[in-house]
């Protein structure tokens, strides 16, 4: 435990179940982005998965919408220390998207419209743990929150849930993405406080 801050009482007295160490709860939805918000129409939107052998599967917006949709309610945790409980999303499970992809890769690089990248172990994308989400709270996902569609990986800090996601590339190597090259953790488990290098 650290040193005391004389006179500081804080707001919360009881531990909050489900809140990872070093996090605090918010009720709004802060926006953090590295640059201007990309504006991508659903007409021009494409999403693809490329295996380590170079085979690419691509979906148009209509094809993506025709896939089985899931409604999920999850807690999200941002590395800047806010957490938000019970967020509601609609999207397509990565299990569905990876169904026809033949791969022995261990890692995935998500790439976004606007140039953002983030690396995620493939294990974290499988087993009902990750989605490409296109609705938040029952409405189309707003551009500043990553619309038309973003990656949703609630088991990791939220910078791994790439906004404006356009592709996932599978690889046998764990290459660092954007924030991972700029001081943030390669894995990013909030329960282990994997925040920085």
């Amino acid at each position: 435990m650290g040193l005391f801050s004389p006179g500081f009482m804080g707001r919360r007295r009881e531990p909050v179940p489900g809140l990872p160490p070093g996090q605090h709860l918010v009720t709004d939805f802060p926006v953090l982005s590295i640059g201007p918000t990309p504006r991508v129409s659903t007409e021009e939107w494409r999403f693809s998965i490329t295996s380590e052998s170079g085979l690419m599967t691509t979906w148009t917006w209509d094809e993506f919408q025709a896939l089985p949709q899931e409604d999920v309610t999850v807690d999200i945790h941002c590395v800047t220390s806010w957490s938000k409980f019970g967020t509601g999303w609609r999207g397509v499970s990565l299990d569905t998207l990876l169904e026809g992809v033949d791969t022995g890769a261990g890692f995935a690089m998500a790439r976004s419209y606007g140039g953002y990248t983030t690396n995620v172990p493939l294990d974290e994308l499988r087993g009902g743990k990750a989605w490409v989400a296109h609705q938040f709270d029952g409405a189309p996902l707003a551009p500043e929150h990553g619309g038309p569609a973003r990656l949703l990986v609630p088991s990791l800090y939220f910078w791994k849930s790439a906004k404006w996601v356009r592709s996932i590339e599978l690889s046998t190597r764990n290459d660092p993405g954007f924030w991972e090259q700029n001081g943030y953790h390669m894995h990013g488990d909030p329960w282990r406080e994997e925040r920085y290098w």
Binding site: H24, D28, F29, P30, L32, G35, P36, W82, G114
Partner: peptide
Amino acid sequence: PARIRTERYGGADG
């Protein structure tokens, strides 16, 4: 857009 870098303060909440 690649020449514009942003940092945003989220909601004041909390």
